[in-house]
Design a protein around this nucleic acid. Structure first.
Lengths: 261, 261
DNA sequence: ACCTAAGTTCCATTTTATGGAACAAATTGG
DNA sequence: CCAATTTGTTCCATAAAATGGAACTTAGGT
């Protein structure tokens, strides 16, 4: 086993409840001889991976690790990350996944993952659809204040279907629900028989915001499947939100998160 | 030389302008045989320090590094507190705020708050700049004795601009002024037309020291605004100093503190 | 399909890590 | 203030891993 592996094990010892480690911590956590623990910590400090806390024998991650860790945020763009997550979920559940961005009152699909079921929801990349009349759009609109939403629709709404919000008040009520529940859902809106679930996440550093969406024929998904999709999307988006420190991200209610798979 | 040292060298290759590396990058940057570079990158990926970008042969820092790097902020709780205060001030005044630490004669930005004005000072996190030629640097250097400062610059200064201190005596004179007034200021130093005000504070228990800084276009801030920024920074730093019992903290002169808001 | 650049694998040699135990230092308790 | 105990460091022979040159494979570009 290379010393690299031992060093990584040390890094994995750090957590939100353990901000620093000592030689004995390593002995008990990793079961290594304390001679190794002692030398390893010193070597990692000498190399600049760790630093000692004041004059004590406690070690914590170094500034270097902090800086390299920050690179990760820039290395992958928000869209890349969201796309990777939606791609994975789409693979798992077999339904179509896509990510979209909002431009004003419109939603634009950016990337799509077709899904593999015979009955498949097909969405065109690059098409603009009305934000208020789709789950992706409402997931993104829910990140605005009610006032900002009103400003987007100075002339009210022109509902494309009976299941979409019919007026501004109905839209605001549904956005309130999105903010409460952490996800947006549509049913029979753009296409009859199609259900879609969306979660939005942003990067305050760049101002980008995307919606992650899984879309499927309503007849094909059981209530459990629907819950699983909500959970997957939310978990994936939460990962991104943690990375970008998105202050607007809404985690789903624990009651949903805890439901058995 | 241990493989740990080589791995850290790889991590040091990452910067704000290099988000990923390849085998050949390492060969040219570190002068190592490409057989080593190839194996090292793979080992680091297998251990979870790096991840490959998509299906390409590019490597970037992993989520693990991002997470461990975040620990640094909590481990060095001084940074967290300082960051919160600078963030609040930045929100209030709308200008860019950041906090930095000193490593030898260099200053490294740790966190930043962009500010919301159209004309905005942008500072790169993780970049090293000369301590003596910035307000953050001088705020931190002012915590050292003149002798300690002299030891940091055995070969004198290489001023990057005409407004920075031109020699050691000039630097010491400016540090004396920082100690007298409780804040450091720069004007037209790193960037033309940019003014920055910094205050330093430390935690004697851990030995950590940080500088809190607000940076703004000189043309955009009135004398009153400038005073308000000095006051806010100093009050925030004083809060931290009280918590950590920092014996080196210098409160601003009452004449400034009392000026009407 | 060719050529070139980039990346990987192989192998004997050199260097480094390992872990038990002795030693040293720092805490704790009386 | 000293003894007991816990915690951390150093030493050493052995075992394991890293090294770098060259052969080999793969990917990119024209």
């Amino acid at each position: 086993m290379s010393i690299l592996s031992a060093a990584v094990d040390v890094l994995r010892c750090f957590s939100s409840t353990r901000h620093d480690v000592t030689v004995t911590d390593l002995v008990s956590l990793l079961g290594m001889p304390k001679s190794n623990a002692s030398r390893l910590l010193r070597a990692m400090r000498d190399e600049g991976l760790l630093e000692t806390v004041g004059a004590s024998k406690r070690y914590r991650p170094s500034l270097l690790l902090n800086q390299v860790g920050q690179i990760y945020r820039f290395a992958a763009s928000l869209i890349d990350r969201a796309d990777a997550i939606v791609g994975r979920i789409s693979d798992e559940v077999g339904h179509t996944g896509y990510i979209s961005v909002r431009r004003g009152a419109d939603i634009i699909g950016v990337t799509a993952h077709p899904g593999r079921h015979a009955l498949r929801v097909v969405t065109a990349i690059g098409d603009r659809i009305s934000a208020f009349a789709s789950s992706t759009g409402r997931a993104l609109l829910a990140r605005l204040s009610d006032d900002e939403v009103r400003q987007l629709y100075p002339d009210g709404l022109v509902p494309p279907s009976g299941t979409a919000p019919q007026n501004l008040d109905e839209l605001l009520a549904r956005l309130a629900r999105v903010r409460r529940e952490g996800y947006a859902e549509s049913h029979d809106e753009a296409v009859r028989g199609v259900r879609a679930i969306s979660v939005a996440v942003g990067d305050p550093a760049t101002g980008d915001e995307v919606a992650l969406c899984i879309s499927f024929p309503a007849a094909m998904a059981s209530p459990q499947e629907r819950l699983a999709i909500i959970r997957s999307l939310s978990e994936g988006a939460a990962e991104i939100a943690a990375l970008t420190r998105d202050p607007l991200f809404i985690p789903i209610r624990p009651s949903i998160a805890e439901t058995a798979p």
